[in-house]
Amino acid sequence: MIKKLTTMCAVLLALIVALGGCGKPEEKSSKPGKDKRTIVFVFKLVGIPYSNACRKGAEQAAKDLGVNVEFTGPAKGGDVSGQIRIIENQISRGVDAIVISPNDPNSVKPVIEKAMAKGIKVFTWDSDAPDTQRIFYVAAADDVGIGSDIMDQLAKDMGGKGKVGIMSGSQGALNLNQHVDGVLEALKKYPDIKLAKPLLYNNDQPQLAQSGMAGLLQAHPDLGGIACVSSPGPPGAARAVIAAGKTGKVKIWGLSLPSENRQYLKDGVVNGLILWDPGKLTYLTAKLVNDYLDDIQPVDGSVIEDIGKLSVSDDGVVIMPGVVITKENVDEFDF
């Protein structure tokens, strides 16, 4: 009897140790703040190509600046409380700076206050949280502006007339809703372009992007273009347009990665993308944050090598130049 119990305890112990072992991968930076400065980027969602590109920029910055730069975020999309949890976690870790791309700007307000009160410097990049204590925000364009840029390009290709659809990702995502607002806002400038309803939501699933677009093409056989504000949109719409044999008749502009659209751009199915290099954006942010910790503020009009001229406004918004990607220049981008 006792033997059996002892065996059981041994098994329990072994399992616990094994479990503890799970928590030990890459135990590289367990002492933040002591020997090396630590800057943590908290993105909206990890494990997708966009965040991956951001992470590469963060890793490059770590090498070049000689500081610890970490990159993390929730594992599922739109996870507001998961993101807060991660930020709380970094606060109790006592890192030097936290850079957030908030899933929701209001939700991070209290946690930013808390971090700043504990002497941790907080910044935002990629998506802003205005009306909080964040020190500055680094972006390639504002969320509404991206939407109107997409619509303007689309209107140009459509010759200023026809029917246009809109495809977004999830219905709850703030930045996507702002992109959609931008598209709708710009649409008002073109009286001869009509909106094709309903608005499509692909829930960040490529299959839904494709089938949604296929459905819209059936509902509006005279559709002239589609504005896609999240990354599965343009390739999904392109597949539906090819399947319907309408290449060239339906213009596609959107926000997406060049690597996902290279062939479609070259074949003329996708007309163009509005984007920036997420890696460079993150690299630049890490550099500006590191400078700030050394008491160097970002300066309006300063030119950064490989990135271009920055514009810095009074409310702490730093804008780096974005790019328009078409078939002519798509091969210059490797992300």
Binding site: Q205, P206, Q210, P232, R239
Partner: peptide, 10 residues
């Protein structure tokens, strides 16, 4: 169908 695949696709 998609010609590409990414971990969160499905």
């Amino acid at each position: 169908i998609n010609n590409t695949f990414q971990a969160n696709d499905v």
